[in-house]
């Protein structure tokens, strides 16, 4: 049986905890708003850029158009970019993306190297003895395109040097405040995926025509400009989406923590009150017992 003093201390510490988690929740709420804004603002550009890439990938003779469009016959080594967060306290956010990534690539059959964005992802992968070749941490939130351009450069360079034959990115896709899901996107080489249910006005709807582009001023210059840049844009989009997911996940985690801390405070308070009451009752009994004994004594003497 703990003493009332111990109980009081415990209640106070849980209350402090609830205060901290509530503050974190408020901070995440404002961060998530900013992140969603940044995500929505970039989405149209990124999706149209992706569409242009798909159109290029569907061109006849794509293999000679640009090295990034060429399919390779053999896949000897794969690079995976995993987007996680720098800080924890975001529920299962980092675990989920790590588990998703490993389940996708642990059975790849060829060596897989990882590039991580975010400190937590790096820690988790290193603990699982994965080969992490580069780690990007402390990105601003939300980042500007220039902040993540280096990642795009790195993967494009390594791909062109034949270090890797395929490049994927895994990140937590932000659907809404409640739903975020880990997804995998293939970055290189560019592969055509036909969208069956493309509605008119859908930003990601693609043309089915494969008529040949003409290029101005000339083919090399245009493609040199377009293909690497648009690949980097896809990475940028993934990171923005992942950050929105991170803050949303943290907000929900912190709200849950606040709620359970408050519940804990209530039940502790109840126990404390019971304990205090029983101590008082015992004291009363003692006093009453003592008084009775005294009275009896006096009567006996008299």
């Amino acid at each position: 049986m703990p003493s009332t003093r111990e109980m009081r201390l415990r209640i106070r510490s849980v209350k402090n905890l609830a205060q901290v988690t509530r503050a974190l929740e408020t901070v995440s709420a404002s961060r998530v708003r900013k992140a969603i804004q940044a995500n929505n603002a970039t989405m149209p550009y990124a999706e149209k850029a992706w569409k242009v890439l798909i159109h290029l990938a569907r061109q006849p003779g794509r293999d000679v158009l640009h090295p990034l469009l060429r399919q390779r016959d053999r896949v000897d080594r794969i690079l995976v970019i995993m987007v996680s967060s720098d800080r924890g306290l975001a529920g299962a956010y980092n675990m989920n993306i790590t588990r998703h990534t490993l389940s996708e690539f642990d059975r790849a059959g060829v060596p897989v190297d990882y590039v991580t964005v975010g400190r937590k992802g790096r820690e988790l992968l290193v603990r699982k003895k994965k080969n992490v070749v580069a780690a990007f941490v402390d990105l601003p939130s939300p980042p500007s395109f220039n902040d993540v351009a280096a990642i795009g450069q790195l993967v494009v360079d390594d791909y062109l040097k034949d270090v890797y034959d395929q490049v994927f990115i895994t990140y937590t896709h932000f659907r809404n405040m409640i739903k975020q899901e880990p997804v995998t996107q293939k970055l290189l080489p560019l592969t055509v995926v036909d969208k069956e249910h493309a509605k008119p006005g859908d930003l990601s709807a693609t043309h089915r025509t494969s008529s040949v582009f003409t290029y101005e001023p000339d083919q090399n210059e245009v493609l040199e400009n377009v293909v690497p840049h648009f690949t980097a844009i896809q990475i940028y989009k993934a990171i923005l989406s992942a950050q929105a997911s991170e803050h949303a996940a943290r907000m929900v985690a912190m709200r849950n923590a606040t709620e359970s801390a408050n519940e804990l405070v209530q039940s502790l308070q109840l126990e404390y009150n019971k304990l205090r009451q029983s101590i008082i009752t015992n004291e009363m009994l003692d006093i009453a017992g003592g008084a009775n004994a005294l009275q009896n004594d006096e009567r006996g003497v008299g």
Binding site: F213, E216, V226
Partner: peptide, 19 residues
């Protein structure tokens, strides 16, 4: 305003990619 000069685009233009 294409890099190689102004381009007027009407419906049914042939596919072009230009900087």
């Amino acid at each position: 305003p294409g890099t190689a000069g102004e381009m007027g685009i009407l419906p049914h233009h042939s596919p072009v990619l230009t900087t």
